[in-house]
Amino acid sequence: MTTTLRPASPSPRTLVPGVFRRQKMPRRRGRRVFSRRQRILFSVVNLACFFLAWELIARYGDVPTLFMPSVTDVFAELVEMSEEGILWSNLGISLLIYIVGMALSLAVAIPAGLAIGGIKVLDKALSTYVWALYTMPRIVLMPIIILWVGINDSARIWIIVLSAVPATLVVIMEGVKTVDNSLLVAARSFGASRGQCFAKVVMPSTVPFIATGVRMGVSRGLLGLFIGELFTADNGIGFIITQAAKTFNSAQTYAMLLVFVLFCVAMVSATQLLERKVMEGRRSSD
């Protein structure tokens, strides 16, 4: 590119005849940055609008209450259930089952993912099954699980595990394979053993994938929890939802759905936070 020195004219011509350079370049729009307070305020207003719209439609719209109870009814139901203790005991049970299921899932999926991804023979032998399990809708396993363990809490845990494990597993498994080979060569050049290569190179470079895998597992596990409670439980949030729906108690159905959604959001945001924490220290070197 050539630069010509010339006194700045008010509207300098460009090299293309007839085209004048703009006086001011349009300011490049960066991404808008919101402060923390702004973000919270925005969320609150957003939610308030949602509930307001719901209330207005339920009240003045031409929708039967059975299909759409008003927000106030739903919240009244929540308060009542909370006072009766139904809400907390069932929420507690669901949470406990979920935590047990997820702890088991991660205890299986993380080591298995690292092993399958890192050991060629295992990868060749098992990855087909892992992908098959990952791809198929886990709900079809429910009848088999009931056949095996019966209708009880362990059935619920089983479906959580079978839902969460493949999701976590595939991410970690593929993550291990992305390890930069030049890092492995560098480690070997210092005389690293296979075990050292794994501990000092493979493991740390897979950490972001483990975090993502955990997040995937957490959301898949929630699906498993709900399926389990629909099919096999006599308590838990999912059970109350089905019961309420069967008895046409729509306010209670909606109330528990709301609780379930909140439960899911809490779980997923917690893991997202974890993931972000991990990623912060770990952007790639370029």
Partner: peptide, 17 residues
């Protein structure tokens, strides 16, 4: 590889973490 040798690589091969 032995401890009496060390390699410097073209692509640096530093651990990003």
């Amino acid at each position: 590889p032995e401890t009496d040798r060390a390699v410097v690589f073209q692509d640096y091969a530093l651990m990003p973490w």
